[in-house]
Amino acid sequence: MTSKIFKQALLICLTIQIGSVFFSSSAFAQLPTPVSTSEIGIGIGGANYKGELSPNYRFLNNQPALTVFYRRDMSNAITLRGGIMGSHRIADDNTFSDEAYEELPFHDYRKAELKLSLLELSGVMEYNFLDYYSRRQRPRLSPYAFVGVAGVLYNSKLISAKDDLNKEYVTSLTVAVPFGVGLKYALSKHWNLGLEFGARKLFTDKIDQLSEEEPLHLANPNDKDWYFYNGVSISYTFYRINCPPTYKKEPGLLD
């Protein structure tokens, strides 16, 4: 009797063991292959300055801007992006000016306008609120937020009704903190559409050549200059299949 029970138990264990091997092999085969993605893209939009001449964001102040970027996913939620953005006026009268605020004392006194060009090199981290890189998601889209650091090369000229405020073109380099929000939408497996609005907090108050160091004190000493970028982009995604690590019967300490 005992021998019969033992044989039955052994047969059950053997069946379970064989079944588990086939089940685990089947489940492993059904697991998605790890895939990482990278993108290259181009965007067009507007750059907008905020400072002494324009203390509030004004949409009409936007001047043309162009950006190119490279983006790589690090996880389902995190992507890193490097990019170059340039902005330059198309027409000579495309300037930032005191005109919209001329009822205010400083603006009425200066009657100044600013000619500004920007070149930005940035690196930012994006947080995707949805799993954008999962192709099982329909539709495939995600809002995101970003923050990073940027180096900014700017060229500016100040023109004023007051001769003592006129400044010739000055080129200088500064640092900014870019941050903002955007939306990604997959047009197809490889092509993506993007919308973005971002602000750049500068570490200088001299981009408009008006600062607290000026003898006439026509600047706010408690506020640095800002600029913004808002635009639309198109990008192309590259997919890379990541092979699983090589099996080692006795892995080393660093494996």
Results as ranks from 00 to 15, higher is better:
S3T: 14
F6A: 15
C13M: 13
Q17E: 10
G19S: 03
S20V: 02
V21R: 13
F22L: 15
A27T: 10
F28H: 13
A29W: 00
Q30M: 09
L31H: 05
P32Q: 09
T33I: 11
T37Y: 12
E39C: 02
I40K: 02
G43L: 00
G45K: 05
G46M: 06
G46V: 02
Y49M: 05
L53F: 10
S54Q: 15
P55E: 05
N56A: 15
L60P: 08
N61H: 12
P64M: 06
Y70M: 15
D73C: 05
S75H: 05
S75L: 02
I78Q: 10
G83N: 07
I84C: 06
S87C: 04
H88T: 15
A91Q: 14
A91P: 01
D93F: 08
N94R: 10
T95Y: 09
D98R: 00
A100N: 14
L104Y: 15
H107C: 07
D108L: 07
Y109V: 06
Y109C: 00
E113C: 03
L114R: 01
L118K: 02
S122T: 08
V124K: 03
E126Y: 01
F129P: 06
D131H: 13
Y133P: 05
R135G: 09
R135M: 15
R138E: 15
P143C: 04
F146N: 07
G148A: 07
V149W: 10
V149N: 06
V152L: 09
L153N: 13
I159S: 14
I159H: 07
I159L: 14
I159R: 08
K162L: 12
D163K: 09
D163M: 02
D164V: 11
D164W: 12
L165S: 02
N166C: 02
K167T: 05
Y169D: 09
A176M: 03
P178M: 00
F179W: 06
L183N: 09
L187N: 00
K189D: 12
H190P: 04
N192P: 02
G194C: 00
L195R: 01
E196C: 04
F197M: 11
L202T: 08
F203Y: 10
T204P: 08
D205P: 01
K206W: 10
D208E: 04
D208H: 03
E212K: 15
E212H: 12
L218I: 14
P221K: 04
N222R: 12
N222T: 07
D225N: 09
Y227P: 00
F228L: 00
N230V: 01
V232C: 05
S233N: 05
F238P: 01
I241R: 15
I241V: 14
N242R: 11
P245H: 11
P245W: 08
T246P: 12
P251I: 06
G252T: 10
